[in-house]
Design a protein around this nucleic acid. Sequence first.
DNA 1: ACAAAAGTGTTATCTTTACACCCATGT
DNA 2: ACATGGGTGTAAAGATAACACTTTTGT
Lengths: 240, 240
Amino acid sequence: MEVLNGKNYINQIAIDCVVFGYEDGQLKILISQLKYKGDFYALPNGFIFQEENTDAAAHRILQERTGLKDIYLEEFKVFGKADRNNKAFLDKLIELNYADTAFEQTHNPMYEWLSKRFISIGYYALVNIKAVEPQLTEIDKSLEWYNIHELPPMIMDGNEIAQAALKTLQRDIDEKLNVFNLLPEKFTMKEVQDIYESVFERAFVRTNFQKKILDLNVLERLEKKFTGAKNKAPYLYKLK
Amino acid sequence: MEVLNGKNYINQIAIDCVVFGYEDGQLKILISQLKYKGDFYALPNGFIFQEENTDAAAHRILQERTGLKDIYLEEFKVFGKADRNNKAFLDKLIELNYADTAFEQTHNPMYEWLSKRFISIGYYALVNIKAVEPQLTEIDKSLEWYNIHELPPMIMDGNEIAQAALKTLQRDIDEKLNVFNLLPEKFTMKEVQDIYESVFERAFVRTNFQKKILDLNVLERLEKKFTGAKNKAPYLYKLK
DNA sequence: ACAAAAGTGTTATCTTTACACCCATGT
DNA sequence: ACATGGGTGTAAAGATAACACTTTTGT
């Protein structure tokens, strides 16, 4: 049983979260830039308390960063390569930030703890982006949304994890009908289609897409949405 | 870094394997009965070495028990409840086997190590049952095949893990085309159908099933298989 | 000849796709 | 009036399901 910041975490296991949101017609994920010299980008991540369900840990990690309590979450893959550790990242960070202070790597318990081989459990989350107010933790310089198809290079295998999450979403989206977690209570069909097109990186025929989604029989048609645009106003829908 | 039998394993992480095989028209999985008093049944499981990929660990665990080197394996789910530990099982085992020897639980390092909360990574494997020669490890009384729909009660959440594996197989089987890993090099269409019917617990119309599988365009038709039965001999197939 | 199981073919039904057409909205 | 995007309908194409029919095998 080891300790990080006085917390009783399980050793050598991490959780990495790929948080999907939808905004301006784009599918995005939440990425933190670390508040250290050097452009370090990372997925929201954290560790698991000894007496905490792994699912609960993922929820806690995301609540800290999004303020949201009830988040749609799915565990999707374990990342467990033997050489999967933070050493390269930590050494670079120390080199760029603590070069003059002669950082004691070999006997620093935090360095020891963090530089071990880590197995990470990948979760993906679908959130209503408007409901999120990104919360900086003590190690974040920024916490922002990036288009899933234009991600900055992340530390460790962050980019690989994000791609695997997207692939899982492709597999799950029709089966679990979880797209709607990305949208506010009321939404238009075009918004649903935008998300599908981002997820699958291809266009869908508008009219057939509408039919397919309505045939799922999970949506209730509401009033029209008048945007001021000079075209027919689309209907709003909500989940039944 | 802790030690079990002198091995350098990662703490508090285990691997549980659901090994599927097909025999006598039935889908079966491999289950060990432990060589202790009390009817303890368990999935093939083990731990991960510090310098070992998790996938490699799963392969090693299965090679020890099946003798097979190249096994079709898929990681499918993490089992991470906070109360997931071996305590109840170990205490029962000690009560039934070491009652008179006043087993020192509190300071026995093996007990300490094993009774901690464990996160388990679930893998499922598909093997040609004929190629397997179950190998007893030092803790097994027997290692046998059980019909997936008639499993004995296992220690921990073994039964839950097996059910989750089956559910994953239902999802994967058409997409990954991995059924054929359950069969020998040459097999008949009926054998493929038997497996599908076990996996989905429902009947398929024979003629349509044949068409569906052949339309996948992954099989090559070979010679007929004469069994001595008084009916038309079925063709054998193999993967292209 | 016959029973049992395997293989082929045909038709009906359901799903998916492509696209024509009409409708509402603001300038 | 018209450009723009939204909604409905229809027909063609493709996939799935039901089932009749034929073939092969050993007794």
